[in-house]
Design a protein around this nucleic acid. Structure first.
Lengths: 180, 180
DNA sequence: GACTATAGGTGTACGCCGTACACTTGTCAA
DNA sequence: TTGACAAGTGTACGGCGTACACCTATAGTC
């Protein structure tokens, strides 16, 4: 059922995946859904957690920088596949996949030598960038900025990596110099 | 009318500022609103542009780094005042204040010596961070991360500035070394 | 002063939405 | 055979955006 909801939202947008529409898609009456989910909010929670499950979690033992890089890129890709989730990832009450992911990231950063406080900062700045970028990407096509860029080889993945590396460089420097 | 809509959304959230509720607030019948606005989307566009108007635009002649810093901080504050706008700033079709702001930022960056391409990158990474951070901030209170931090002097403004300066440092370095 | 165009407000109605509540049905354990 | 229980059904309510036809007061022209 969550799978169906995600597929529907992928195909026709979030507002199309209404309880009624989803029920119809499943060949069932709307109220039947409420036997599996308390309400629409809980449905959204479940859908968002599916997306979280698609993001690659950083392994503990790995070199932190490339682990973080892979995680960020996989997050962007997941959000590109499910762009309806972009506004929701940080708003919904976190599900199991979300918590597992958070633990993995924090673990990886602590392991790498970041202090608890700095790891929080590092996590925060990365996620802010990832989610903010995904949000931008959804709309960039109509901004006049984009109009002159495609022919000059503009690529969202490259743009994303540019900012990501800038941030990771900063974090790396901050780790080496033990900046607070 | 836009003013009233913004006030209503500030007070009771975006979903509370429905056409019907807004009309009621203005002592008028719902359909009366449609004499001033084509539909709800256009209303949202107007509301978002009001928020854009509250963000400090960087002056052309100023030192770019502090100008960008002030702009970012004022943007975060505007989004804190109008947190309903967070998901919308980049999704709506841009209004006059939005365009004016964009021009000011690009002008300031070009003036500072960034190439066109790099200015795009710089703009993109900053905005992604600003909007992404604002989005996080809306929810951070329920994340378990926050639970242990308030007593240890945690402050969202400080957190924001930490990441912002990390990014600005990166941009500054990139400007000095003429990195592509 | 009479006439009319127009901006703004009104009332009704339609089809969506989420969901409360009471009901049926199919399955399986005791 | 019985009874509990998970899953599906049907009806109904209040809220939403908004299409469409109507009214009314003001302002400009002759």
């Amino acid at each position: 059922m969550l799978r169906a909801a995600v597929a529907l939202a992928d195909a026709d947008g979030l507002e199309a995946s209404s309880m009624r529409r989803l029920a119809q898609e499943l060949g069932v009456v709307p109220m039947a859904l409420y036997k599996h989910v308390a309400n629409r909010n809980e449905l959204l929670d479940g859908m968002v957690d599916i997306v979280f499950g698609e993001i690659e979690s950083p392994p503990l033992a790995d070199d932190w920088r490339s682990a973080m890089r892979r995680r960020a890129i996989s997050a962007r890709e997941a959000l590109k596949r499910h762009s309806w989730a972009i506004g929701l990832m940080e708003t919904r009450t976190p599900g199991p996949a979300n918590l597992r992911h958070r633990n993995a990231v924090m673990g990886c950063l602590r392991e790498a030598g970041f202090s608890f406080q700095t790891a929080i900062h590092a996590y925060s700045v990365q996620d802010a960038y990832i989610y903010g970028f995904a949000q931008q990407e959804r709309t960039r096509y109509l901004a006049e900025i984009a109009l002159k860029l495609p022919e000059s080889g503009y690529d969202n993945a490259v743009e994303f990596a540019w900012g990501l590396d800038l941030i990771l460089d900063g974090l790396d420097r901050c780790l080496r110099t033990a900046r607070p």
